[in-house]
């Protein structure tokens, strides 16, 4: 029996590799640093309503139910990391720097290495992804744009750690891998365009994935039941914006959210383009003496599935 029970989060390494079926993590893996991870396998027992068995032979009518592997990873990706993640989120390979929507969510495997054993999750797809920013007032608060990935997998395994199974590539930390910050974002709307000032934003791309269990224990496949893409903002309340937010209730507006990380003559950019977004109107609320925020939720309503959202990711430094 191992006498070591002090494995810490900072000793964990996350490896990712695209592919179907059993993933070979001995080469070609991508390594990421993460904020949190909570992917778990949840296997329930099912007691069937039948007349066989009695109190002494309970196993006669108990069996394993579905095998659900799901959880969330939170990371702070740079533009170079997004080149790998956007096809998994959008359901289509990119063409150059442009990533449109599709219906083939590239499966991938995740290996969470610890010195005391590995978590291996295979058949993974991105159920939903959230790009979110937060404004930290004062101090040295956390202001980096985070990416929350909810993953559905089809297989989970604990495996003894072996360097042969999971050699750890060096964590890449060049400039295009550094995260965007909250204040490097810019939201433009309309043909003008005008700039929308915000305190925070989040973009949610929900693929509504569902693991399908026929008569088996493992999910035979993962299907999408639809897609919803929304951009949420919290802005300082002002009269002009208040009026526009109501007008956009039934009038689609073009919206651009651009993240840009510059350093001297170099820059990386990621642009989220909503060709037609409608606002789910919510009137501002007065909370005591504090300032009055205006919350807006733009619903991507492109004319066809491929134009609801287009992401251009230029990771060239």
């Amino acid at each position: 029996m191992s006498t070591c029970c002090n494995v810490m989060g900072f000793e964990t390494a996350m490896l990712v590799k695209s592919g179907t079926g059993t993933i070979d993590f001995t080469s070609g893996t991508e390594r990421y640093a993460i904020l949190t991870e909570d992917i778990s396998a949840n296997i329930e027992l099912q007691g069937r309503n039948r007349i066989t068995g009695d109190r002494t032979t309970r196993t006669a009518y108990m069996r394993k139910k579905g095998y659900v592997v799901q959880g969330t990873i939170v990371l702070q990706p740079g533009a170079a990391d997004l080149d790998a993640w956007l096809p998994r989120i959008m359901g289509a390979a990119g063409v150059g720097d442009v990533f449109g929507l599709g219906d083939t969510w590239t499966p991938f495997g995740i290996l969470l290495y610890t010195p005391e054993g590995c978590k291996v999750i295979e058949g993974c797809r991105v159920n939903y992804a959230v790009f979110q920013s937060a404004h930290a007032e004062g101090g040295e608060g956390e202001e980096f744009v985070a990416l929350v990935l909810n993953i559905i997998g089809t297989y989970y395994e604990h495996r003894a750690t072996s360097a042969a199974q999971s050699p750890l590539p060096t964590l890449v930390m060049t400039q295009p891998h550094l995260p965007y910050t909250h204040w490097e974002g810019e939201i433009l709307y309309g043909a003008g365009p005008d700039e929308l000032l915000y305190r925070s934003f989040s973009i949610q791309i929900n693929n509504f994935l569902k693991p399908i269990f026929y008569n088996g224990f493992y999910a035979s496949c993962v299907r999408s039941r639809g897609r919803r893409i929304i951009l949420q903002t919290e802005s300082p309340f002002c009269d002009d914006l208040f009026g526009l937010s109501f007008d956009w209730l039934d009038e689609a507006v073009e919206v651009y959210l651009t993240l840009s990380r510059a350093d001297g003559g170099n820059a990386v950019n990621t642009e989220f383009y909503f060709p037609a977004a409608m606002n789910n109107y919510k009137s501002p609320l007065v909370k005591g003496k504090d300032e009055v925020p205006l919350h807006m939720m733009f619903e991507a309503t492109g004319a066809n599935p491929n134009s609801e959202l287009v992401i251009t990711n230029d990771a060239t430094w």
């Binding site: 989060g9 900072f10 000793e11 964990t12 390494a13 996350m14 640093a33 993460i34 904020l35 990371l75 702070q76 040295e140 956390e142 964590l171 930390m173």
Partner: peptide, 9 residues
């Protein structure tokens, strides 16, 4: 000082 970080970072 130490800012918030990720695992491995």
């Amino acid at each position: 000082g130490e800012h918030l970080g990720l695992n491995n970072i």
